[in-house]
């Protein structure tokens, strides 16, 4: 089954949304992710990966018009709460040897999914995945699988925060999160930024991810240096293809002999947008 893109959102430090991430446009106002609808008490002691996941999820959902209480959700991350993991180890070294309960409860890989469900009163279901450099591919695959099972919509979030010292001695990247709201049917209402397309389209449709053999079409995306090695780097290409309404096969990453891609197609009325394909 293919899925319609109702909305997307992204965040990097200093880059508040999709266009800023794609243009690598940094602003001081976007130092921290906005957290609309998340009680500060709930978010206290949460990590960057959880906060940016929560942020992109809320913003994509707001744009889509889909009720956050009733949407199933997939959260993908290669390293999850790695900063809290290291913070806990430091507490073992320097403190009284105890691990803070406040930190520990937020240390699980599904913390982002948990705070999302609590903040929005979502009792439906969520899952949290990890697949290294194929995390975007498998998160999309899981999202399509949930639609296949009959859900009308699904939220797909991918995020990894910058590795903490000393793990950053091995490899480095910047924090980065992206989210998509996918639906079985074309969107009925245009989102504030027009991504959803409205009743007349254009609609962006994603085929189910496929194992890919052969060349992949890579959108002309300026990759911020901090994302070159990021496990969710391929999300950037997908964000760009959707944002620019560029049909084609987009790479969703590779590990060893395994490569995945996703077919992006554009349906319905086409709209000329500056700097975009139509």
């Amino acid at each position: 089954m293919s899925a319609y893109v109702l909305a997307q959102a992204a965040w990097m430090p200093g880059r508040a949304d999709v266009d800023a991430v794609l243009e690598d446009r940094v602003s001081a106002e976007a130092k921290r992710p906005e957290l609309p609808g998340y009680p500060s008490r709930l978010m206290r002691g949460t990590s960057v990966v959880t906060r940016m996941s929560a942020s992109v999820a809320a913003r994509a959902l707001a744009r889509s018009g889909v009720d956050p209480r009733t949407i199933p959700a997939v959260f993908g991350s290669a390293y999850g709460e790695v900063c809290i993991a290291i913070e806990q180890l430091e507490m073992m070294v320097t403190g009284d040897g105890q691990v803070s309960p406040a930190l520990f409860k937020n240390s699980v890989h599904n913390t982002g999914a948990g705070v999302f469900s609590i903040a929005h009163g979502n009792h439906i279901m969520s899952t949290s995945l990890a697949a290294g450099p194929l995390t975007v591919a498998y998160s999309m695959l899981e999202g399509h699988g949930i639609l296949d099972e009959g859900a009308s919509h699904v939220l797909v979030v991918v995020a990894d925060e910058a590795l903490p010292v000393p793990l950053s001695e091995v490899v480095q990247w910047e924090s980065f999160a992206a989210a998509w709201v996918l639906g079985r049917e074309p969107p009925r209402d245009a989102g504030p930024d027009g991504e959803a397309g409205g009743e007349a389209g254009p609609w962006i449709r994603l085929a189910a991810p496929q194992v890919h053999e052969g060349p992949q079409q890579v959108p002309d995306v300026r990759v911020p240096p901090g994302l070159a090695a990021h496990p969710c780097r391929s999300a950037l290409d997908l964000l760009a293809a959707i944002h620019r309404r560029t049909p084609g096969l987009v790479s969703l990453g590779r590990e060893d002999d395994e490569a995945w891609s996703i077919e992006v197609s554009v349906e319905g009325r086409t709209v000329e947008r500056e700097g975009t394909a139509s």
Binding site: A113, T127, S128, L129, A130, Y138, E258
Partner: peptide, 15 residues
């Protein structure tokens, strides 16, 4: 790698 299957392979981590 060891068993030689080549279908989808991923990890779920929900505590």
């Amino acid at each position: 790698a060891e068993a030689g299957w080549r279908g989808p392979t991923y990890v779920v981590s929900t505590a």
